[in-house]
């Protein structure tokens, strides 16, 4: 691994044990994020994106969830070997996180200032007064013109976009090395979405932190990301630079996703869609998990799960169509 690598996820498996069934929500995920890089994790609902991010934070509700195997290394240190106490020092400090639902992600009975101050008091040993002062600065940074008053307000007094700004300020308060954003713009109006994405880019530049952005919106990917991980059925099926992925998608699933994206310039009569739905995590088909929905499926697809191979430099694909090209992955 290079010095530039910040986070490495290796062979991560997170399973849910429910009523005797095993749901393999995340089933052998490998990827890495470099310092200052923005990586997008893309896929349909139920593909395991959020569970991957919650696994990194170790916030999987247990039981029924359990990280079965794998390693999650932050600057070379395996987070899975940490005790719960040590992990608390990572959460909110080394890794900040923002969520999909800004309307409900802030505690309704505490002021914005109190909630912003909390991680700084906890992780940086600030006293409450300094933390409140810093909270005002952070709010100004994320675009609150009258931050002095906002710190004294309660979440219900702010709009969804404003609350998401507060969440970003909170996630950035301890200057984290990695910001995980789980569908940060899904619940917001389109105009506000762009503002929030811009804000994340600004904040990222200022602090030089890496971002893992989870989304099902390829527009968001195009706007923000350096690299894209496409997830399907608990596995990564394609890993490429954003530019590469949009111009030269390999995996049939990625191609399907791109074709189902509306394009103003292109006057298509109908949008293409991928037939079928994501298989449930407790009942994956044998072999390639996308095969039942794939146009190019052949008999060999159902025999074994294809490996994620480096097909072209820095472009990995999990599909037998490309197995004879390029070398084995690392």
């Amino acid at each position: 691994m290079s010095n530039e690598t910040l986070l490495e996820v290796e062979g991560l498996k997170t399973y849910f044990h429910i009523e005797g069934k095993v749901a393999k929500a995340v089933d052998g995920v490998d990827f890495s994020i470099d310092r200052g890089e923005t990586v997008a994790l893309v896929g349909e609902s139920g593909s395991g994106k959020s569970i991957t991010s919650m696994s990194i934070m170790q916030l999987i509700p247990s039981p029924p969830g359990k990280i079965e195997e794998g390693a999650i290394k932050l600057e070379g240190k395996d987070l899975l070997s940490l005790s719960e106490r040590e992990m608390m020092k990572v959460r909110g400090n080394d890794i900040g996180m923002i969520f999909q639902e800004p309307m409900t992600s802030l505690n309704p009975v505490f002021t914005i200032g109190e909630q912003l101050a909390e991680p700084m008091v906890k992780h940086q040993g600030m006293n409450k007064k300094d933390a409140k002062k810093r909270a005002v600065e952070l709010l100004k940074l994320v675009g609150f013109p009258r931050a002095e008053e906002t710190v004294k307000e309660y979440p219900h007094q702010l709009s969804g976009g404003m609350r998401q700004r507060v969440m970003i300020a909170m996630a950035m308060s301890c200057d984290p090395k990695l910001l995980i954003a789980d569908e940060p713009t899904t619940a917001l109006d389109v105009t506000i979405q762009a503002q929030i994405l811009d804000l994340m880019q600004d904040v990222k530049k200022k602090y030089n932190s890496a971002i893992l952005i989870i989304t099902h919106d390829l527009g968001v990917v195009a706007e923000t990301s350096d690299r894209v991980l496409v997830m399907y059925g608990g596995q990564i099926v394609e890993n490429a630079s954003a530019k590469d992925l949009f111009t030269n998608p390999k995996h049939p699933y990625t191609v399907g996703l791109l074709n189902s994206m509306p394009d103003v310039a292109d006057e298509k009569e109908r949008l293409e869609s991928i037939p079928g739905t994501v298989p449930p995590a407790h009942n994956f088909p044998d072999g390639c998990r996308f095969a039942p929905r794939c146009k190019h499926a052949m008999e060999a697809c159902t025999e074994a799960v294809p490996k994620l191979r480096e097909n072209e430099p820095n472009h990995h694909v999990r599909c037998i169509l490309y197995e004879d090209q390029g070398g084995e992955k690392e």
């Binding site: 916030l59 900040g96 505690n107 909170m170």
Partner: peptide
């Protein structure tokens, strides 16, 4: 969701329960 946020901030289980949960 806001309890998940509190956990993601790295607060102790104690603080999550007695401060964020009970108050609500």
């Amino acid at each position: 969701d806001y309890i998940r946020t509190a956990r993601a901030k790295g607060l102790t289980e104690r603080s999550v329960l007695y401060k964020h949960t009970l108050r609500n």
